[in-house]
Design a protein around this nucleic acid. Structure first.
Lengths: 172, 172
DNA sequence: TATGTATGAATGAATG
DNA sequence: CATTCATTCATACATA
């Protein structure tokens, strides 16, 4: 293949960084994605790109890729991203039974880890990506499709509300 | 036990959010990995997962990720320019105009144009309160324009081979 | 306890 | 569109 990264010389010309959607861009993208329209036509992409450009640098390719990835990964839903276990012995569920069945929406709201202001890193994907809920509620067409939530690993006991899909993007 | 919902206190309970393979699981995984079988098919993953399940909680995604990471990292073990080698032990950071992020305050972007506070209006008291600092430091550089491309940024930096015109494979 | 390292997971981009 | 690759982020764990 071709190495898009480092050149042959071995010295980095310019540190490339991949596009990182801003929260606003994400919100918009997610909203559009939720509209049901699958992969937007090229024309649509242009429009979207145009709008998103007002919220940060972006290209049509970015938008295109985003939709492709979004769709490809929406199947995985929240898939048992992770589990927890340390020893092959007896597992000790240390979580209280009263928090088990929290809705996914709540997961971002008050389940943030260590909200100490000192080391609060505002970069958690949950926060940025889930913030769409706020604008969504004013959107008549937007149904809270929690089919595409941030895919956060749940805490023990809170994942059973989903249909544990066994698909992480691969054929049998 | 601690109630996970009471995160307000500021100390994490026992929220284990990341799968940690047990020694036994690791051993098995390594063995399979060494057997040359590259990317295990989905079916294979299921089998492996199944077996590993007997040695601790695990999901197919965990296995999948493990192999992905394993391969990616073993491959990356090939570094060292024959010509001149910089020290770089683990300076995994771009040499771009990166601001001082000494603290773990890794932002979600290093070039995104300031997520305006207006766009980040949470109704959640905890988050919104901690959000203040964001509006202050959210826009450290607003992309100096030194490395931003002519109009596309699919490949930030210097590669023109990726100038995918206006077509990323799609009909109008 | 503070810092560094190892590694699971998330995701933009590339390839088939 | 299905998979895979590469890079990055977050955190478990080791060390000083």
């Amino acid at each position: 293949y071709c190495d898009p990264l480092m050149a042959s010389a071995g010295h980095k010309i310019t540190a490339r960084q991949r596009w990182t959607p801003t929260p606003v861009q994400l919100q918009i993208l997610e909203r559009i994605f939720d509209q049901g329209t699958g992969t937007p036509s090229k024309q649509k992409i242009k429009e979207i790109t145009s709008e998103l450009s007002q919220h940060g640098q972006i290209s049509e390719t970015n938008v295109y890729n985003w939709f492709q990835n979004r769709r490809a990964r929406s199947k995985r839903k929240q898939l048992g991203s992770s589990s927890n276990n340390a020893e092959s012995e007896h597992e000790t569920e240390v979580e209280s039974p009263n928090e088990k069945k929290t809705k996914p929406e709540n997961l971002l709201s008050q389940h943030n880890p260590a909200p100490r202001a000192e080391d609060l890193c505002f970069q958690n994907p949950e926060i940025s990506s889930d913030l769409h809920f706020l604008s969504v509620m004013s959107n008549p067409n937007a149904y809270s499709g929690d089919e595409h939530l941030s895919g956060k690993m749940g805490m023990p006991g809170s994942y059973d509300i989903y249909d544990q899909a066994d698909d992480y993007g691969m054929a049998e």
